[in-house]
Design a protein around this nucleic acid. Structure first.
Lengths: 149, 149
DNA sequence: AATATTTTTGGAACAAAATTCAAAAAACTA
DNA sequence: TAGTTTTTTGAATTTTGTTCCAAAAATATT
């Protein structure tokens, strides 16, 4: 058996999807050429960044989810984006925001399990510039990416 | 003008997209019928919940984003899901999680601006059962829904 | 008001992709 | 091993997306 499932998940998580022009046209009762024109325009303008699948993460074995509140070292205050942009590439990170309040960064993390999360914290969140983190572990996800889960 | 843009955004935010089977087939060098079979299987099993667009929210005028940490009243501790599920329907809410730590719930909120956010807090987060909230306002989004923004 | 630009629309022709079907291969079960 | 289920696959069919007009309508600009 070919392990196609894993490859599909990897691709569909970030892209390889497309709008259903004919279905949308029927739904809002407009000609499909008009829908086509408008969607291509949104894509060109960068309004639409991608089309992707939303998964039931439990069902693909990504069981653990956590929000991480991060304090940066004072010398990073002048440019918190530096560390934030270093973190972009890690596929376990769903969201990164620079925020107001008692913390400088907030991350949303997804890992297979708590062991992988522990490794993630040790390896990735131990970098210079991060002085303190606080985990809010998700006990139950109710909504994610605007989708009820 | 028909304001098709708004209708498109509304539909594409939650669905009306589909996987690009032929493109995936080429990418991972498998017959497209095999890809088709596997994707339909994932859909039937509920592994894939939907296909949707990811937007540059700034470009569609959804400028404000905030994470809200919520403390529930003690009488809600036995069933924090009750309030969480009441909140699902509000389109401003991107994520809802029940979490460990000093708070019971965490939300991720998107509104046009801070005024709409203020209305949201007054009208929706003032409900019985919620005793305290803390906002972490996003100053800058770096990554969202796994996509660099 | 006149002009320019953008958006909407239809139709047709084409290209590309999705879906169905049947059969073969592989994996699993007893 | 024999039988069952699941997965893979190619060929044919159906559906859908794309493009190319050209024209009308709406909007914006001067």
């Amino acid at each position: 058996m070919k392990n196609i499932k894993e490859k599909l998940i990897e691709l569909l998580k970030l892209g390889y999807c497309t709008p259903q022009i004919a279905r949308i046209a029927k739904k809002i009762k407009e000609p499909s050429t008009t829908i086509h024109y408008n969607i291509k325009k949104l894509e060109k303008e960068g309004v639409i960044k991608t089309y992707k699948a939303v998964f039931d993460y439990k069902k693909i074995g990504i069981e653990f989810c956590s929000y991480v509140l991060i304090n940066l070292a004072p010398e990073e205050y002048s440019n918190p984006e530096r560390i934030a942009r270093e973190l972009i590439k890690f596929p376990q990170i769903e969201c990164i925001d620079i925020v107001t309040g008692d913390y400088e960064l907030i991350l949303k993390i997804r890992t297979k399990n708590i062991e992988e999360y522990y490794e993630f914290v040790k390896n990735i969140l131990s970098r210079k510039g991060i002085v303190k983190i606080k985990s809010l572990n998700s006990l139950k996800q109710i909504k994610s990416e605007f989708i009820e889960v």
